[in-house]
Amino acid sequence: MRLFLDCEFTRLSATAKLISLALVAENGREFYVELLDTWRVEDCSDFVKKIVLPQLWGGSYALPIVEARMSLLRFLTSFKKEVEIVTDAPQYDWELFCDLVYDGGRWPRIVRNFPTDATTLTPTSEGEELPHHALLDARIIAGMFAQ
């Protein structure tokens, strides 16, 4: 099962901090979370402040990192077969996903421990311009590779 990953984060740098993360499965199931305690507005680039932060949904999607990790692990382990994480930005999204999914130094067995780079796959349709919202972007990326 392929899960299409997208993340929003504070800036394009090695010190990027996770703001939101989304996964959209080939079967249409979705996961979305916004982190409450991993970043501050001062950490964000001007682009993120202007484009990303105003799109956050808050409410029940906004969780502290401990709860976000538990929620993500519940979602991932609900699949019956190994899941493959596909992302168009492995150098950022995969690293941030790993930081969130590691639990006490353990990797969830259901998740393949390396990403698939979406840019190496052949899309079945044209993608739209990404709006820079993790869930909306993940839906668009998943739609590009729908079989």
Results as ranks from 00 to 15, higher is better:
Asp37Trp: 11
Ala16Asp: 01
Gly28Asp: 06
Phe31Leu: 12
Leu12Tyr: 07
Phe9Ser: 03
Tyr32Asp: 00
Leu36Phe: 13
Arg11Leu: 12
Ser20Glu: 00
Asp43Asn: 10
Thr15Ile: 05
Lys17Pro: 00
Leu12Ala: 01
Leu18Glu: 04
Thr15Arg: 14
Ser20Thr: 02
Ser45Asn: 07
Leu21Arg: 08
Val33Leu: 02
Ala22Thr: 00
Arg40Phe: 05
Arg11Val: 09
Cys7Glu: 00
Cys44Trp: 12
Ala25Tyr: 02
Trp39Cys: 08
Ser45His: 05
Cys7His: 01
Leu21Asn: 03
Glu30Gln: 13
Ser45Ala: 14
Cys7Thr: 13
Leu23Ala: 06
Arg40Glu: 14
Val33Met: 10
Val24Pro: 13
Glu34Arg: 02
Glu34Trp: 11
Val41Leu: 14
Gly28Met: 12
Arg11Glu: 15
Glu8Gly: 00
Ala14Val: 05
Ala16Arg: 10
Asp43Glu: 05
Leu18Ile: 02
Thr10Pro: 04
Val24Gly: 13
Thr38Met: 14
Phe31Tyr: 12
Val41Trp: 10
Glu26Gly: 13
Ser13Gln: 03
Glu26Cys: 11
Leu18Thr: 00
Phe31Trp: 07
Ser45Asp: 15
Ser20Val: 00
Leu12Cys: 03
Ala22Gln: 11
Ala25Pro: 07
Cys7Gly: 06
Arg29Val: 07
Leu23Glu: 11
Val41Asp: 04
Ala25Thr: 08
Trp39Ser: 12
Glu42Ala: 15
Phe9Gly: 04
Leu21Ile: 03
Arg29Trp: 06
Thr10Trp: 03
Phe31Arg: 03
Tyr32Leu: 01
Trp39Pro: 08
Val24Thr: 14
Glu30His: 06
Cys44Asp: 12
Trp39Gln: 11
Val24Trp: 08
Asn27Asp: 15
Gly28Glu: 09
Arg40His: 15
Arg40Met: 12
Leu23Ser: 14
Thr38Arg: 15
Thr10Gln: 07
Ser20Leu: 02
Leu21Phe: 10
Lys17Arg: 08
Ala25Cys: 06
Glu42Gly: 09
Glu8Asn: 04
Asn27Tyr: 05
Asp37Ser: 11
Glu42Pro: 04
Leu18Asp: 07
Glu42Trp: 10
Cys7Pro: 03
Val33Thr: 14
Val24Gln: 10
Arg40Tyr: 15
Ala25Glu: 04
Thr15Glu: 15
Val24Ser: 11
Leu35Glu: 01
Cys7Asp: 04
Ala16His: 02
Ala14Pro: 08
Asp43Ile: 03
Glu8Cys: 07
Ser20Ala: 09
Asp37Leu: 07
Leu23Cys: 11
Glu42His: 12
Glu30Ser: 11
Trp39Tyr: 15
Val33Phe: 06
Leu12Phe: 10
Phe31Ser: 05
Ser20Phe: 00
Ala14Asn: 11
Thr38Ser: 14
Ala14Ser: 13
Arg29Gln: 12
Trp39Ile: 09
Val24Asn: 05
Ile19Arg: 05
Asp37Pro: 11
Thr15Ala: 12
Val33Tyr: 09
Leu36Ile: 08
Cys44Lys: 09
Leu12Glu: 09
Thr15Gln: 13
Leu18Lys: 00
Cys44Thr: 07
Tyr32Arg: 00
Asp37Met: 10
Ser20Gly: 06
Ser13Asn: 04
Glu42Asn: 10
Ala16Trp: 02
Tyr32Gly: 00
